[in-house]
Every structure is written in structure tokens, then in C-alpha cells.
Design a binder for these strands. Structure first.
Length: 230
DNA sequence: TGCCAGGCCGGGT
DNA sequence: ACCCGGCATGGC
């Protein structure tokens, strides 16, 4: 352990790492990099982020494949495709009528504000872009943050159902905590580094799936069980 | 068979 | 400011 006091002027004080940071290190050592987001392009990340809303990823992949096979998987073509056709193609992803509308809403925003150019959209500041995306019907906080982090490489932490379940199961936040509180828990306790946020969220999904069933109390095999309060 | 999956919206208190 | 029903397919 490091002694504090005498050499304050020489080296900065060493504080204990926040527990949130410890948990990341634990997960990374246990599972290694997760290689997220599974997509071939930033635009594909955006479409996937909308399609995966409350939906298993395997079903999203089917929808993405359909769009690619129809040779319309680019912003212009998708924007020109009528909702009926679009909903048919994304059917495997579920909620297909809503999601067709959501994709169209996003593309309308994308073309009217940024000429359909991602490079143009990324020039916007993080906070402004986030607020603007949240005004699009069908883009909520998680979807917006997923787009910002995994498509745009912006340093914003994504909170999803697994994240929520893991931090609540381990009593790192109160049971009623909402999205912004959990997001702040992570962002206040971690350096603002895109790669870190990227990997951390992916790791949380990994252990969420593996050890944190929806109705289970707390899996004894979870590598985080030692961090439980109380 | 029923439950779950990388949410979000709109209407009702 | 919460709370809840609706949206829908596919896998286990």
C-alpha cells in the first residue's frame, strides 16, 4: 500500500479506486474484450440500435440481413422505401410497424438536419446531438446513447436492462433508480474514455446474460458477488 | 407452454 | 412525476 502525507508535493495523492472502476477491472480480467458493437459500419450500428429495442439480437440480425439482401441498406434507399415494404423486411425483429416508423423518423431527422451525412452529424457536440435525437419519436435514452457511443465514438455511458439489473441486484443503486442516475454512477466514477465505456457496457451485458437472470435472486457464480453491499 | 429479449410511447392517475 | 398497457417475433 502507498503511504500518503510526506510526499504529497512530489506525487499526487493516491485514492482508492472507485468500486465502479474495480468492477470493470474484475470483469475485464474475467472475460476480456467483447468486441462491440457487432456491426460492419456506423450506420449499421444505428439501425441495429433501433431494431434491438426490447428484442433478442438474433432476431435483429435476420432483419438486417433482409435489408442487405434487398439491397436497400443505405440511408438514401431506406428513406425512400415505403413503410409497408420496410416493415415487411424487418418483421423478424418484432414490433415491425413501430420500428419501421422509428427508422423512418430517424432518417427524416438525419437528412433534414445533416444531409444524410454521418460526418456532418458527428460534428455536433455530444450534448446537443443527444438532445436532438431524443426528440425523434422512437429514439429514447438508451438508443440515443448507443448510437453516440458505438456509432459515433462519443464518451457517453449506455445503460440498458442488463446494466440496470446488475447494479440493482448488487445494490450499487436504489431499486427505483432511473436511467440518468445509473448513467451518472458510471460516468462520475470513471475517466471519460470512449473505449472504456464501450467495453464496460459490453461486459455488463455479458455477465447480465450469464449470471443475472430476470427472476433469479443473485447467482453465486457471478464474479461480482463480492461487491454486494451489506 | 410460457417467459424472455441490448425500449419507447401515450394516456391515465 | 410516476405507472401501465401496447407493440410482436423467435428461441428455449
Amino acid at each position: 500500500m502507498v503511504e500518503h502525507g510526506a510526499d504529497d508535493k512530489i506525487s499526487p495523492k493516491i485514492y482508492p479506486l472507485p468500486i465502479i472502476y474495480h468492477i470493470y477491472l474484475t470483469l475485464y480480467k474475467a472475460f476480456g474484450p467483447q468486441h462491440w458493437w457487432p456491426a460492419e459500419s456506423p450506420f449499421e450500428v444505428i439501425m441495429g440500435a433501433i431494431l434491438t429495442q426490447n428484442t433478442a439480437w438474433v432476431n435483429v440480425e435476420k432483419a438486417l440481413t433482409n435489408l442487405k439482401e434487398a439491397k436497400i441498406f443505405n440511408p438514401q434507399s431506406l428513406y425512400q422505401t415505403d413503410l409497408e415494404t420496410l416493415s415487411l423486411l424487418i418483421r423478424p425483429a418484432g414490433y415491425y410497424n413501430q420500428k419501421a416508423r422509428k427508422i423512418n423518423n430517424f432518417l427524416h431527422f438525419f437528412f433534414s438536419s445533416y444531409r444524410g451525412e454521418l460526418s456532418c452529424m458527428w460534428q455536433e457536440s455530444l450534448k446537443i446531438l443527444r438532445d436532438k435525437m431524443l426528440k425523434v419519436r422512437g429514439i429514447g435514452e438508451e438508443t440515443a446513447d448507443s448510437i453516440l457511443l458505438y456509432a459515433g465514438g462519443k464518451p457517453i455511458f449506455v445503460v440498458d436492462a442488463y446494466t440496470m439489473r446488475v447494479v440493482k441486484r448488487h445494490q450499487l443503486v436504489e431499486e427505483k433508480a432511473y436511467y440518468g442516475e445509473v448513467q451518472q454512477l458510471f460516468m462520475r466514477n470513471l475517466p471519460r474514455i470512449t473505449e472504456l465505456y464501450n467495453e464496460y457496457h459490453a461486459l455488463l451485458v455479458r455477465i447480465g446474460k450469464e449470471f443475472c437472470g430476470k427472476r433469479e435472486p443473485l447467482c453465486q457464480l457471478c464474479p461480482l458477488r463480492g461487491y454486494l453491499k451489506g
